[in-house]
Computed example of a mutant assay.
Amino acid sequence: MLNSSLFDAIPGVLDVAAPRVAPICVVYDSPHSGVDLPAGFHPSVSADMVLKATDTHVDALFDNAPATGAPLLRALFPRSFLDVNRAESDVDVEMLDAPWPHPVLGSAAAKRGMGLAWRFAWGDTLMHDVPISVAEMEARIATYWQPYHQRVAALIDGVHAKFGQVYHVDCHSMPAFGHALSPDPAGTRRPDFVIGDFDGQTASPDFVAVVVDTLRAQGYEVALNNPFRGAELIRRYADPAKGRHSLQIEVNRALYMDEDTRARSGDFAAVKANLDRLTEEIAAFAKARMAAAV
C-alpha cells in the first residue's frame, strides 16, 4: 500500500482523495481548480475577477478517479494567486517592488503576465495596483508551490516504486476561445479537448492514444498539443524511458459551465459521465500494463 500520509490534507493548500479500491499505477492532479482565496492575499480586483482564470469544477469532473484506484490531488488556492504549473523560477519580475534575488526563467507566459503569480487578473486588468514585495512572492512559493510539488512528486514516486510504472493525468480546463493572455490569438475557437504530451516527450503513444481515442469515440473534437502542449507538471515528472508517463487534459469550459458566472450548465452531468468513462478506460489500460509487467 502507498504511505497513508500521502493522502493528508494541508488546509488552504491541497487535499488528496485516496483510492477507494485497490490502487493502480495512475495518479491524477487538478492544480488549477482551487477557489479558496488565501487570508494574506489582497488583490486590487474582486474575487470574481481573481477566479476568472480558475479551472472551476475540473476537480469534480475527474472525481471518479479514486473509484478506479487512483489518487486525485487538488490545489485549494486560485491559479492566478500562484500557478503550480509554472516552474519555481518563472517569476514575473515586473510585478515586484525590488529585484528578484533568485534565478528567473523569463518564459513567454511570464512575459504575458501569466507567470508563477499573475500580473494581470484578466485581460489588461492588473491583479495588484501596487507591486508586491519579494518577501511575499517568496512566501507564496514556500507555502503553496513547494508543498504541492512535494506531494505530486511523492504520489508519482510512490506509485512508480510500487508498480514499476506510473501514468500521471494532469487535469485542466480552457476558455472556449483564445484571449489576450493566451498563446493562441484572441478569438480563436478551441476544440472540445486538447491533450498535451509536450510534443511527444512526456508519455508513450499508447497512453496518449487511449485518451484521444476514447474522447473522439464519444463524439468530441480533440486536438493534440495545440494550443497547449502541457507545462511544468508534466515536464518535470515525466520520463517515459523509465516508465513515468504524464499527459495534460484541457477541457473546453463551454462544454460544462457558464464562463461568465462559472456555474455548472445543464450539460455538466453528461460531460462528467463521459469523463467517468474515460477514467475507467485509463484504469483498464493501466491494469493491462500492470498485468504485462508481472
Rank of each mutant, 00 (worst) to 15 (best):
P227M: 01
N3Q: 03
A70W: 12
I132L: 03
D184A: 06
G187N: 10
C25V: 13
D36E: 15
D36A: 13
M114D: 00
A17Q: 13
E280W: 11
V222R: 07
G34F: 14
N225C: 10
P101A: 07
P31C: 04
A263W: 03
H42K: 14
I282E: 05
W145Q: 00
S30F: 10
L126T: 14
G243S: 07
M257S: 11
V134A: 11
A70L: 13
L155I: 15
N226K: 15
I249H: 00
G106W: 12
L105A: 10
A18Y: 08
P191C: 02
Y220I: 07
T261Y: 06
P78C: 02
Q248E: 11
G196W: 11
A67Q: 13
M290E: 15
W145G: 03
F228E: 08
R74W: 03
F77L: 07
C25N: 14
G115N: 12
A9P: 08
R112I: 15
W100F: 12
V208A: 03
F177I: 04
D197T: 15
A293L: 12
V50K: 06
D63T: 01
H160S: 08
Q150M: 14
A238H: 07
A22S: 11
P43N: 05
G187E: 10
Q218K: 02
P19A: 09
